[in-house]
Design a protein around this nucleic acid. Structure first.
Lengths: 112, 112
DNA sequence: CGAACGCATAAGGAATGACTTATATATAGG
DNA sequence: CCTATATATAAGTCATTCCTTATGCGTTCG
């Protein structure tokens, strides 16, 4: 049950924010670091955590390290969400029509 | 950014398992405790964490405490998943056609 | 070559997490 | 009433997380 590593990696706001920043392509450690009020080593450590969880991958080029999002790493989270939605169908529909509509919208757009 | 509380709550395998057990209706603390190899206080503490995150709710009846899943608490997680899927459309479709198919299946079934 | 840059790793400390045992509180039942 | 049951809280311990500063290591460039 080391799906937990993904959840733990996502539990820190800085790491979730990093994933958001990586949405539009790879970035170096300094570029990522620039957006946060933490030391450079702290950023390196967050990236190491994301990497260990399989959520990002790294590419070296000269003295730069380019990090990119690794969607495959989200598998455990996606699986959990699917299972949860499936198990809580009725109650979820009752409480979250808007959420479901949005999610379906996302999936529909991904189909084109 | 205290969406983090939900992620932190889900980071422990016991707590995720508890949510699964609650899928088919409310259960008492003892019933939940029976399924795990931890002390009763430990289970109470896990339930307190889930409750603080908004993922479960409690109902008292006599000397029993019935816990039930609270789908509304999943909002921050669902929002994150939506955002991530949206942002990583192309790469995600490339790497996770099966995952997406399953997720769409779940949503379709929820529509009936 | 030597200095500056980009990044990772090491080391240490404060805060938080996850358990334990012991105990408190409330209700139920003989 | 008195005891047992169901649960929560308290208190203590050990592990983990998240930061810091210091340093190491390869790369670029003057």
């Amino acid at each position: 049950m080391d799906d937990s590593e993904v959840f733990r990696a996502l539990a820190h706001p800085t790491r979730r924010a990093v994933l958001t920043l990586l949405a539009d392509g790879e970035k170096t450690v300094s570029q990522l670091h620039a957006g946060f009020d933490i030391s450079q080593p702290a950023m390196s450590q967050h990236l190491a955590a994301l990497r260990a969880a399989g959520l990002v991958a790294e590419r070296r080029e000269g003295r730069n390290a380019y990090y990119r999002a690794e969607p495959a790493g989200m598998a455990p989270l996606m699986q959990f969400v699917e299972q949860y939605l499936e198990q809580h169908v009725e109650r979820y529909r009752e409480h979250w029509p808007k959420q479901l509509t949005r999610l379906k919208g996302v999936l529909a757009r991904m189909d084109q």
